[in-house]
């Protein structure tokens, strides 16, 4: 699905899951890219969207709020065909398996995840990453109390690695990152997700 290069007609709408976390920063990116967006707090909101971004935040909080509504099931169904990108806590929610029973993942991409794998806030870091889809082959990786990807299934492709560990992975329409492209001034990851990467 191409979001930026549709000819005439209405642009598809991107949902940003807004239960908790830094959803506003993702919305800002979509605004800069000229993409219509909608905050998603209920399954009715999701029904109006063609793609979804699950932001960073606390995965236990988002998992709890999904559990209290039917939105979790709706996202699972949505993800069988529609593009979804999850960053940090979003990646944890998209995964198949989490090392922590406090989070119930949606199982939309076959990876296992370890939460807070680098340590506390003092171990949060920013580092340049090799990025195959940008012109200069670089992007900024902002890692905040970040998770690590453990097992990666055969049908999952690693797109970006850091220290030989995957930090951005993809299986067809599902993209998951352990870092925060929404906290940088770059638009490349969002553009890539929307299928309009240069």
């Amino acid at each position: 699905m191409k979001f930026c290069k549709t000819e005439g007609g209405n642009l598809p709408k991107v949902g940003v899951l807004a239960l908790q976390g830094n959803f506003a920063k993702h919305a800002q990116k979509l605004q800069l890219l000229g993409i219509p967006y909608q905050y998603v707090k209920t399954s009715q909101d999701l029904a109006k969207c063609d793609a979804l971004i699950i932001p960073g935040g606390e995965s236990t909080t988002m998992s709890k709020l999904l559990e209290l509504s039917n939105l979790g099931c709706a996202i699972q169904e949505f993800g069988t065909t529609n593009p979804i990108m999850g960053t940090c806590a979003g990646l944890i929610l998209l995964s198949r398996k989490v090392d922590d029973p406090r989070v119930k993942p949606l199982g939309l991409i076959d990876i296992s995840v370890k939460r807070n794998a680098y340590g506390s806030q003092l171990d949060s870091f920013i580092t340049p990453l090799f990025c195959p889809f940008t012109k200069n082959r670089r992007c900024r990786g902002v890692f905040i109390r970040a998770p690590k990807i453990g097992h990666v299934a055969k049908n999952v492709q690693t797109i970006i690695s850091q220290n030989n560990e995957p930090v951005m992975v993809r299986n067809k329409n599902i993209i998951a990152l352990t870092f925060h492209p929404e906290l940088t001034t770059e638009l490349s990851v969002h553009a890539y997700f929307l299928g309009c990467a240069s």
Partner: peptide
Amino acid sequence: MKKNTFELKVGLAEMLKGGV
């Protein structure tokens, strides 16, 4: 690699938005 910058400090605050 950069650690403990003001950007990272505000970054964690960003993650707590919309929460209790």
